[in-house]
Amino acid sequence: MIFDLGDVIIPIDLTAPLRNFAMLANLPEEEVKAIWKEHDIWNRYETGLIDDDNFREHVRKVLHNRTGAPESWADEVIDTAWNSVLLDLPVSRVERVRELGSRYRLFLLSNTNPVHIRQVNRMLTELHQPTLEELFERVFYSYDVKMIKPSPGIYQHVLAEAGLVAEETAFFDDNAANIQAAGALGIQAVHVQPPKTILEYTADL
């Protein structure tokens, strides 16, 4: 079984970082969104083309410098705004993954970045739960493998590395494009759609 992270295990708000950076930069949210898209910051970071320091420096360059402020944002300020995408982590979902782990091989496949993964692991630790690397037999992060869903290559990489057969593997993801791409390879792709969660989608397993 392969699980996505955002909006499958942990709820997310993809618009929250843009709102927070807009407030920090004293710029309209739509302008920040346009800048973000123009520079492709999110994808470049999550495909491992830039590291943490490059990401933060890029944010300072394209957003902070527009304000004309005399001081640069600290790393912690940028990370806090960036991590606002992550909402409260439901313990029930983590416990369900742990239950499934006693009967199935479990893997994590996420389009993500190091700052978010460190934050999720901090949240898990504060909840007295295992880290992602302890919850799953193996984790596959887009920034590590230098590929991003829904590219077919990332699914093929996971299947090969984990020794999985597509037709015998369930994949849970909230993104329709990711589900379609996985399904095209023969994977049993399950589209996780609110208000249902993995608790309902895995109830019969």
Rank of each mutant, 00 (worst) to 15 (best):
A182N: 03
D40W: 03
D174Y: 05
L127W: 00
H116F: 08
N20R: 14
L106S: 07
G163S: 12
R122Y: 02
Q180M: 03
I78R: 00
E200D: 15
L185V: 03
I12K: 01
E133D: 15
A22H: 12
I148P: 02
T47G: 10
N121S: 04
A189D: 08
L124D: 02
Q156F: 00
G186S: 04
S84T: 15
E200C: 09
V190M: 08
K37S: 09
P11H: 04
R98D: 05
I179T: 05
V59Q: 03
K33N: 03
E57L: 07
L5V: 08
E167G: 11
P17F: 02
N26A: 08
D79R: 07
I9H: 04
W36C: 00
H64D: 08
Y201K: 12
R93P: 01
S92T: 10
E57Q: 10
L106Q: 06
V139E: 08
L87E: 01
N178G: 10
L89M: 06
N43C: 07
A181P: 02
A181R: 05
G101L: 05
V115N: 07
S72F: 11
A182T: 04
R93M: 06
R105G: 11
Q180Y: 01
E168I: 04
N65D: 11
L109C: 07
I10M: 00
L100A: 02
Q193M: 15
W36N: 05
A34N: 03
A160C: 01
I198F: 08
P152H: 02
L124C: 04
I41Y: 01
S84K: 09
L89H: 00
G6A: 13
M147W: 11
V62E: 14
E200H: 15
V85D: 03
H191P: 08
T112R: 01
L87Q: 12
E99V: 06
Q156K: 10
E167Y: 02
F172I: 10
Y104W: 05
F107Y: 14
T125E: 09
F21Y: 15
T197Q: 05
Y143K: 10
W73T: 13
R138G: 07
A176H: 12
V85Y: 00
P114D: 13
L185H: 02
K149D: 08
D52F: 14
L205D: 11
K196V: 04
I9G: 01
L205G: 09
V192P: 09
V32S: 05
T80G: 03
G101P: 11
L27M: 05
E31N: 01
E133P: 04
Y141W: 15
Q180A: 14
V85N: 00
P150H: 10
N20L: 09
N65V: 07
N178V: 06
I154S: 01
V120R: 06
H39M: 04
T197F: 03
E71K: 15
L106A: 05
D7V: 04
L27P: 00
G101V: 12
G6R: 05
D40Y: 00
P150F: 06
V97K: 00
L199R: 05
L185D: 08
N20T: 03
P114W: 01
F55H: 14
